[in-house]
Structures are given as structure tokens and as C-alpha cells.
């Protein structure tokens, strides 16, 4: 099993391949799990590392994610979205749940973590224009949002922040943050529908 390269195949047909491997894994094919791991583990680990900001926890999250893939891949069906999006969601939620438990351990503030618990891995996320070059619809719809609202949505999705954390970080009432997020999602929906 190699994890050397972190380049992933985003070409058309990649999702079909991942879907086939998921089906094979559901049938008990260990080699398919290995191929799947080679293909997607870097992306999933990157997401989990971003959310957990701790290498050991992210490794644990990735391990648990693939055990879930092994045990539950039979529950995947196309009506749950593309195989890649399904895997991304599985990995994100695994990391988000672990992050919330860590938050509880640290009194609701990641800033309370000791330096041993923190990996200073985070760099600035790329701009939406650069980072979402292959997804112009989402980029366009996000750019329509107010900057604070857009930041909230990206922080929750990509970094696993809770709305309470954002409220504290920005010094704004929790109700305001929740209102921003909800309004932002509604605006996104309108934009998606408009361009669908």
C-alpha cells in the first residue's frame, strides 16, 4: 500500500471507478478497499487534518473512516450522491464528530489545547476563485454572499467549526451567526436553482 503520491485522479470516469470499488468492497473484496484507499486517502486525510488540526487524531479518523467503508459500503447507493461525495461526507463527519468531542474536552475552546495537541499545519485556504476553478457554479454563488457569511460557511464546511466557535471568535451573538449561516444557505439554494 503506497501513500506516496498525493495527486488524485479527478478525470471523468474517476467517480465510476470509485463507485465500482465501493461495490466490490461491499462484496468483501479486500483488494478493492486497498485500491480505494490508494485513490482517495490523501484527499480524505487532508480534509480530516484540516478539521482536527492534529495528526494523530486525523490518522485515527482516517482509520475509522475506512473501517466504516469496509463495514457499510453496502449502504451506499447512487441516490445518496456520487461515490466521491459520499466518501467525503463520511470522512468529514467522522472528523467533525471527533473535533466536537475534543472541544468538549477542552471546554469548548480549541485554543485551550496544549501545544502537544496541536499541529501547526494550517495555511490559508486558497481563494474561492483559485480553489474552485473546476466548480464555477459554487464559486459564483459563494461570491454573491456577504464576506462574513461566506467565511462562516467555508469555516464550518472545510474546518469543522461550530457556530458557537465562530460566534466567540468574531465576538458576535450566536443568534447572529446562525442567522447568517441560514440566510447564506438559502441564498446559495436560490443561486443553484437559478443556474440549474
Amino acid at each position: 500500500m503506497s501513500s506516496e503520491g498525493i495527486e488524485e485522479d479527478q478525470s471523468p470516469g474517476s467517480d465510476e471507478l470509485v463507485g465500482q470499488w465501493l461495490a466490490d468492497v461491499a462484496a468483501g473484496d479486500r483488494r478493492a478497499l486497498s485500491l480505494l484507499y490508494d485513490r482517495v486517502s490523501s484527499r480524505l486525510f487532508g480534509l480530516q487534518l484540516r478539521i482536527l488540526d492534529n495528526r494523530a487524531l486525523a490518522e485515527e479518523a482516517l482509520q475509522e473512516t475506512f473501517i466504516k467503508v469496509w463495514n457499510n459500503s453496502g449502504s451506499y447507493s447512487p441516490d445518496k450522491g456520487t461515490p466521491t461525495a459520499w466518501l467525503n461526507t463520511l470522512a468529514r463527519f467522522q472528523a467533525i464528530d471527533m473535533r466536537r468531542r475534543e472541544l468538549v474536552r477542552h471546554g469548548g475552546d480549541f485554543g485551550n489545547r496544549s501545544t502537544q495537541d496541536v499541529d501547526l499545519l494550517k495555511t490559508q485556504l486558497p481563494s474561492l476563485q483559485d480553489g474552485l476553478a473546476d466548480s464555477q457554479l459554487l464559486s459564483r454563488c459563494l461570491e454573491r454572499l456577504k464576506p462574513d457569511v461566506k467565511s462562516c460557511i467555508v469555516a464550518i464546511y472545510c474546518e469543522g467549526f461550530t457556530q458557537e466557535e465562530i460566534s466567540t471568535a468574531l465576538g458576535r451573538p450566536l443568534g447572529t451567526v446562525k442567522s447568517w449561516v441560514l440566510r447564506g444557505l438559502k441564498n446559495l439554494r436560490e443561486c443553484f436553482v437559478e443556474h440549474d
Binding site: 486517502s41 484527499r43 487532508g46 480534509l47 490518522e59 468529514r92 485556504l125 480553489g131 472545510c158
Partner: peptide, 9 residues
């Protein structure tokens, strides 16, 4: 998710 760089485990 494309905003987040992949990382090799």
C-alpha cells in the same frame, strides 16, 4: 473540499 489540500497519510 477542493479548497483543502490533500495530505498523504
Amino acid at each position: 473540499t477542493q479548497l483543502v489540500p490533500p495530505a498523504a497519510p
